[in-house]
Design a binder for these strands. Structure first.
Lengths: 367, 367
DNA sequence: CGCCGTATTGAATACGCATTCAAATCAGCT
DNA sequence: AGCTGATTTGAATGCGTATTCAATACGGCG
């Protein structure tokens, strides 16, 4: 990494930090007590007489004292820091997830250290080394490619971790995902019930279990209606590839009358290509269904029928699993969260179908 | 904060960490050397004989040793951690900025701790306290409301910080923004030159200097052509408010023939409302110009003419300013980065105008 | 051979805090 | 008053590393 070289330069330059830090001993001296007493005042659960507590707090306020988290962590062995590893924020699902993860952890007294890793297993490994050196109490691996070696190593090191929106075959690994198979099946049933007969799928990524599950569920859903997919193309969760895939699908003489797309991010590209490039009407000529229900899906421009990944619940589950593991509770395996179908205008709606609840988009869209 | 209560519970429960940590002393013992020698092997710039270095590295590898960053930081007074404070990630400008900030800092050997703060000065204050307790080496305040008290305090504590995409009146404060006044002026000139005569502005936030500068520049740009704004409404960088503002603008008998919008995020809402709600054509009936040039602006659906905020350059400037301050170089004041006008299809283009270069969108859109 | 400057090395210490432990204080009781 | 048990307190110690500092080894030179 380039970082190492620079680090060396800095170390050598040996520039001192401004460092007019106030320590617990300073406060103790000013308050006329011992350093441990100061420590106790700032350690919830320790007892100090009201009189001394008052004196200490006053001295601390006057001096602007704040306990040094590093020193505290060094001797408690808990850093109250969680490492979050992300692949990229292009897909609008992730910014929201990150913000909510951060807020949820923050509410529990934890801090978040973010790392971006290209979607390559080896880079993820390096990043995790980095995290371990930082004594994080736990790790959230958000949708990055994880090698089995890495998960084995993390398990061996007994460092708590949870996979977020990504899983491995091993259902014993702590992971939180949507119920992707069920979601895909729901999409298949819905499009078949809507009377479509040439139903294509622009799938995610072959290497991602998420994508494979959605695809398998989709195929199963169609099969219930005696249908098979018109065609399946891999879009790799990439906008450009989704555009190319759409063109490829609609290039031939007979083309699909419906497309199930592996995530919303690609579905937006599909909608755009259908309308602007190919001059097709949605849903009259083609129905489109996505996956995620990011806030943009509810925008009038897209009005995308999609399977929701409930970010709130996924985040809540992830955080509580991770904190449980940090507190030595028994390790849980994969948790799958139901993916309801959100009916909007981008796909023909079969008679009698309604959204699970009267949701358009419950999330806050301000700011 | 709710965090404190939870913290207390944890402290009291006193659950030990897994903690099978390998220390430098373990490595020293195994390699038959002293702990300081191990330390020197892992401290770039320190000298150790080749023979011992080899033995130490071997022992370290076998034991899976990694230096404990916390202990190291405690000792050197440098944590190699930067705190990044964000308001929200709804506006797609910020996810990209965050990712690039993180990558740039990472390349310099720094880690990023993220904090989300609602856009209230007091909350930002609390977050900064938190950051200070974590001994961050520097702070990036990305577009959050900063009180003068806070910046004064940071200056007094001599903790390096940079405002990103936000500034205060005091031009001596370290801040990186686009050249918002110039950008706004460019928008005004462009729309006036395009022959529009009723040019409205959906502005940002009155409390944000960014927004005020863009607005003032816009007014100045129009004035050069002898025009005054048709009307100015505040959208507060909020999608819903932008929609309401658009409806309000076009509610009356005479309505604008062009709208300059305070940022792209709002401009997308404006475009949608114009087309779907009001049945107007863009740019035939109304021209729209945004500000930011987020990746979505280049999507065919929007094809938004906009003033670019060059994220790369802003991030680069921010990082180098911050690192300079960390290394005790003299403090710089505000840096403004030029905002070129990116011509696309959402606004009528005057004869002879072209984009500065043949950019549609140079940024990587994969992933 | 003896002396001196240089390069390595380990013992000791400091970083800032939490925690153990023993001393001291205090209240409550006989 | 005298004793016991509970509570509060400070001295000492440890967390894992980097950094003095003195001691040692080494190489070159007269």
């Amino acid at each position: 990494m380039a970082g190492a070289t620079f680090l060396m330069a800095l170390r050598q330059s040996n520039v001192p930090m401004p460092d007019s830090r106030i320590t617990a001993s300073d406060v103790a001296r000013k308050a006329g007590v011992s350093q441990p007493t100061v420590s106790r005042v700032f350690t919830p659960g320790a007892r100090v007489s009201p009189d001394r507590e008052r004196r200490v707090r006053e001295a601390a306020r006057e001096l602007g004292y704040q306990p040094n988290t590093l020193a505290r962590s060094l001797n408690t062995g808990r850093s109250y820091t969680i490492g979050v590893v992300l692949a990229c924020l292009q897909n609008p699902f992730y910014p929201e997830a990150l913000q909510r993860l951060s807020e949820a952890l923050s509410a529990k007294g934890y801090h978040v250290m973010v790392f971006f890793a290209a979607n390559m297993a080896e880079e993820v490994d390096g990043v995790v080394d980095n995290l371990l050196a930082h004594q994080v109490d736990g790790i959230i691996l958000a949708s990055v490619s994880i090698s089995n070696e890495l998960t084995d190593r993390l398990k061996e090191l007994k460092i708590p971790f949870v996979l977020f929106n990504r899983a491995q075959e091993d259902r014993g690994l702590p992971a939180v995902t949507a119920a992707n198979f069920e979601g895909g099946k729901r999409a298949g049933r819905f499009l078949a019930a809507g009377g479509h007969v040439r139903i294509a799928h622009i799938a995610g990524w072959q290497k991602s279990l998420n994508g494979r599950d959605r695809q398998a569920g989709f195929v199963a859903g169609l099969a219930e209606h005696g249908l098979a997919p018109f065609r399946i193309i891999y879009g790799e969760y990439d906008r450009q590839k989704a555009i190319a895939a759409t063109r490829a699908l609609f290039d031939c003489g007979t083309f699909p009358d419906a497309v199930f797309v592996g995530n919303d991010h690609m579905a937006f590209a599909v909608l755009e290509t259908l309308r602007m490039d190919l001059g097709l009407r949605v849903p009259d000529d083609v129905s489109v269904v996505g996956y995620d229900d990011v806030p943009m899906a509810a925008w009038g421009t897209y009005d995308l029928t999609t399977l929701r990944q409930p970010v709130n619940r996924m985040v809540g589950e992830t955080v509580s699993m991770l904190l449980a593991m940090i507190n030595n509770h028994p390790l849980q395996g994969r948790v799958e969260i139901d993916s309801p179908l959100i009916l909007r205008g981008s796909a023909r709606i079969p008679d009698g179908w309604t959204s699970p609840r009267r949701i358009r988009h419950p999330r806050n869209t301000t700011g």
